[in-house]
Amino acid sequence: MARQARFCSPGRAHLVRLHAAQGASPLAAPDQRARFLQTMVQGLAQVSVRLHAYAVLPDAVLLLLTPQSAEDLSRFVQGLARRSSRARQAPQAEASVPVSREPAWAGRFQSALVQPGDWELTAMVWIDRAADRAGLSGASPWLWSSLGAHVGEAQAMPVRGPALSAPEAYWTLGNTPFAREAGYRERLDQGLTAVQMGELDAALRRGLAVGDDFFLRQMEIETGRRLQAAPRGRPRMNVA
């Protein structure tokens, strides 16, 4: 069966996830994560994509992006994966044995459309708290994420300025930078429910969308494709 084309709605935010291949940790070292961020900033200058949030973990990368075209989304994320891949050499008995190159990333990247507004903030919190869920962060924000930028901690802002742009939903948190940072910090402290995290993860794995029922129905009408998980179990039979 042919693989369904990736869904992309230009001009709207998309949640993106790169997963490491089994047994691989392509971004395990701090210098690898730092180079990845440099590559990410360079890549943004070459495509029409806005970056809203990011988390670079040893074995995964989470992004919230608004692309202007499906081609821009794929070009940007695939370029990140390609440039950050590294050859892993298998033990060799002789120098003449060819180098075994194993993939750093697991197949295609995952993506999901995100409803504008509150769901964008939900996705940002999910990304900015990714290091906490992985047990990686300490007392300070994870350096390789957008958390520091969103709460105004200058020491934890490796990506800033034009490379990182907040979505409209973030601007509604307050009329001043301090008010917006405080409002976002409050959302971080509240955290997410298990249902919210489950919906984000499921949408990514299935290439669907997250949002309320009205938004999802409207997008299905607009695009002509299913963007919600189908009901579980067999379809109900109509008995005459």
Rank of each mutant, 00 (worst) to 15 (best):
Ala163Arg: 09
Glu120Pro: 08
Phe215Pro: 02
Met124Asn: 11
Gly233Gln: 14
Gln4Arg: 13
Val99Ile: 15
Glu153Ser: 04
Phe178Gln: 15
Arg12Gly: 01
Ala60Glu: 14
Pro98Ser: 02
Ser48Trp: 07
Ala24Leu: 01
Arg133His: 10
Ala45Asp: 15
Leu204Val: 01
Ser165Ala: 11
Thr39His: 14
Ser48Asp: 14
Leu73Ile: 07
Ser9Met: 14
Asp132Met: 08
Glu71Gln: 09
Pro167Ser: 08
Asp128Leu: 00
Ala112Thr: 12
Thr122Gly: 03
Pro26Ala: 04
Gly152Asp: 14
Gly138Thr: 04
Gly135Glu: 10
Ala203Gly: 01
Gly191Asn: 06
Val210His: 08
Gly79Ile: 10
Val159Lys: 06
Asp212Val: 00
Gln42Trp: 05
Ser111Met: 01
Gln92Glu: 11
Val49Met: 06
Gly191Cys: 04
Ala21Glu: 02
Ala20Ser: 14
Ala60Leu: 05
Ala202Trp: 12
Glu186Arg: 14
Phe7His: 11
Leu136Gly: 04
Val97Tyr: 00
Ala230Gly: 09
Val61His: 03
Ala45Ile: 05
Val195Cys: 02
Leu18Trp: 03
Ala182His: 07
Gly207Lys: 02
Pro177Cys: 03
Asp72Asn: 07
Val47Thr: 13
Phe215Cys: 01
Gly138Phe: 04
Leu188Gln: 02
Ser145Gln: 03
Ala93Gly: 13
Ala229Asp: 13
Pro177Asn: 07
Arg180Ala: 03
Pro26Phe: 04
Gly191Ile: 03
Ile221Trp: 05
Leu173Ser: 03
Gly11Glu: 13
Ala112Arg: 11
Val114Met: 10
Leu44Ala: 05
Ala154Asn: 08
Gln228Gly: 00
Asp128Trp: 00
Asp59Phe: 04
Ala55Ile: 13
Ala139Phe: 03
Arg35Pro: 09
Arg232Lys: 15
Leu147Pro: 00
Val195Ser: 06
His150Met: 06
Pro58Phe: 08
Ala81Tyr: 02
Arg185Lys: 13
Arg185Leu: 13
His19Thr: 15
Met124Lys: 10
Leu63Met: 03
Met219Phe: 08
Ala34Asn: 09
Val151Lys: 13
Pro58Val: 10
Arg226Phe: 06
Asp132Arg: 12
Gly135Lys: 08
Trp144Asn: 05
Ser137Leu: 00
Arg12Cys: 07
Leu208Cys: 10
Leu63Gln: 07
Met40Pro: 02
Pro177Thr: 04
Gly174Asn: 14
Cys8Gln: 10
Arg180Ser: 05
Asn238Gln: 09
Ala70Glu: 14
Met197Ala: 08
Ala53Gly: 09
Ser48Ala: 15
Pro141Leu: 03
Ala202Cys: 10
Leu192Pro: 06
Pro231Tyr: 12
Val41Gln: 14
Arg75Met: 05
Leu64Phe: 04
His14Ser: 09
Ser69Trp: 07
Glu181Phe: 14
Gly207Tyr: 06
Arg75Ser: 13
Leu15Gly: 05
Tyr170His: 04
Arg160His: 05
Arg129His: 09
Met124Asp: 13
Gly138Asp: 08
Leu113Thr: 13
Leu121Phe: 02
Gln196Tyr: 00
Thr223His: 12
Ser100His: 07
Pro26Tyr: 08
Glu168Tyr: 12
Gln78Trp: 02
Asp201Gln: 15
Val114His: 07
Arg50Met: 00
Ala203Cys: 01
Trp105Tyr: 10
Asp189Gln: 11
Trp105Gln: 06
Gly135Ser: 06
Gln32Thr: 10
Arg187Thr: 02
Val16Met: 08
Val99Trp: 03
Gln46Asp: 08
Gln196Asp: 03
